[in-house]
């Protein structure tokens, strides 16, 4: 398993076995994609309880329990079905897919990416009102950024633009 980071977003690229410490590291990143030969198992994780909590937030109760209680291994299609990974490609295409994804992320406004990351993490701990309040606070800040203005201008002129993080 390899973890790449672009614009503060971490992506796990899973090829082959993802067990124990690798599985735990995979749960900590923002996005997970896998080759079709990947296999996942919670066997050998250092903190199974923390894994259970993390899985419940990532996948919901039913899917978290399916993974953590019996400790069975699942293959790549199984992981896609559960939402543990959000994309499965042939193992030979994993590198190209990862490059395309990191290019895609690099082309997005970094402040908005960071705001999304923060907002999603917080939703489950907040009432909907408080979560929306947090979203609005981000929105007020983002709408005043140079990157937002540049993005809207580029949209109307039907061209690409580079973002500066300002």
């Amino acid at each position: 398993m390899e973890i790449v980071e672009v614009a503060g977003i971490r992506v796990a690229l899973v090829a082959g076995a993802c067990v124990g410490p690798d599985f735990e590291r995979a749960l900590e990143v923002d996005l997970r994609i896998a080759g079709d030969g990947a296999r996942f198992s919670t066997a050998g994780v250092a903190d199974p309880v923390a894994c259970g909590v993390r899985l419940a937030r990532l996948l919901g109760e039913a899917r978290a329990k399916e993974l953590i209680l019996a400790g069975r291994a699942i293959d790549a299609p199984g992981a896609l079905r559960l939402g543990l990974v959000t994309r499965v490609v042939p193992e030979s295409a994993l590198g190209d897919t990862a490059r395309a994804l990191t290019e895609q992320l690099r082309a997005l406004p970094p402040l908005a990416l960071a705001a999304v990351r923060d907002a999603v993490r917080a939703v489950r701990d907040l009432t909907p009102e408080a979560a929306l309040g947090r979203e609005h606070a981000h929105f007020r800040r983002l709408i005043a950024t140079q990157d937002h203005k540049a993005a809207v201008a580029a949209f109307f002129e039907r061209r690409e633009t580079a973002f500066t993080g300002k």
Binding site: G83, P109, P128, D147
Partner: peptide, 16 residues
């Protein structure tokens, strides 16, 4: 476009 919306709804409907 450098903004955000639907974080709350998508996180509730789909999990993280």
């Amino acid at each position: 476009v450098g903004l955000m919306a639907s974080n709350v709804q998508l996180s509730r409907l789909l999990f993280e």
